[in-house]
Amino acid sequence: MDSRVIAEMILHLGHITSREAPVLGLTPAQWAALRYFARANRFSRTPSAFAAFQGTTRGTASQTIKSLEAQTYLTRMRSEADGRSARLDLTEKAKAILAHDPLEALVRAADGLSRSGRGHFASGLQLMLGEVARERGKPTFGNCASCERLEGDGCRRVGQAHYACGFMSEPLVLKELDGLCINFVQGAPLRRTGSFAGATPR
């Protein structure tokens, strides 16, 4: 298939799955923020990381975040490390409303693909996202499971975690491996065989 056709189809898919009118009282920008903070790992649930992911200004991102805090969809926690930076977490109210996310139509369409089809499609999109981000000088977001900075072999030893982030020098729990991260650097995907405990060493 022609590369331009692929690009146009991706763009069109984005257009028809995003609504301009508010859904359940939330604008498309607010829905995008809730999705981001639902998927981002603890290192990336910050206003600046969200702005980078959306490709928008910090001021615009801040306004969206403040509106969600005012509606009690997000809660802000100050960093214990420096007291200046903040981490944003979804409230239970936000987790409940995400079940009605207008993006669910696209999720169902993706579910219709075969498991191998989803894998190939996701890999291709990740490569495309990385290329466009590099060309435009933007950070490339991805997850720990395919990041070259992931350390560990999946085996738990006394006093050690299964995995760790080599960039942040922080241990990672298994459920964090699929979270979006602003510190992502493309590496070989982590092989998973039923459970992380049986993962192939990186």
Rank of each mutant, 00 (worst) to 15 (best):
T72V: 13
L190T: 05
F53E: 02
F37N: 04
P201H: 14
S114L: 11
G119D: 10
V158W: 02
E151F: 03
A199S: 15
L177D: 06
F167W: 12
F50E: 02
L174A: 13
A133K: 05
G83R: 14
T193I: 13
H162C: 03
T193P: 11
A40L: 03
G179I: 02
M77V: 15
T17V: 00
G142A: 09
R78I: 09
D101W: 08
R35I: 02
S114E: 14
R35V: 00
G59R: 12
Q54P: 07
T27E: 00
A38N: 14
T200H: 15
G152T: 14
E135N: 09
V107W: 03
G117T: 09
S79N: 15
C165S: 04
A29N: 01
I6D: 13
A145G: 07
A40R: 01
V158H: 00
M1F: 03
G124M: 11
G194F: 11
F50P: 00
D111H: 12
F184M: 12
Y163D: 07
K138N: 08
L129G: 14
P201C: 15
S85R: 05
V185W: 11
S114F: 06
L98F: 13
I16R: 05
C181L: 09
R115Q: 10
M1S: 01
R115S: 12
A61T: 12
C147A: 10
L88T: 05
C155D: 06
A33H: 00
G159C: 04
G25V: 01
V132C: 06
I10Y: 01
G142P: 08
G59E: 10
P139N: 06
S116W: 13
T64K: 04
A188F: 10
S123F: 06
A81W: 04
N183Q: 13
R134F: 07
R4Y: 03
S146F: 07
S48I: 07
F121T: 14
T200C: 11
R78C: 06
F141A: 00
A40G: 02
P22D: 00
C165E: 03
A40E: 02
A81Y: 04
Q54W: 01
M128T: 14
C155E: 09
V107P: 03
G198C: 08
G83C: 12
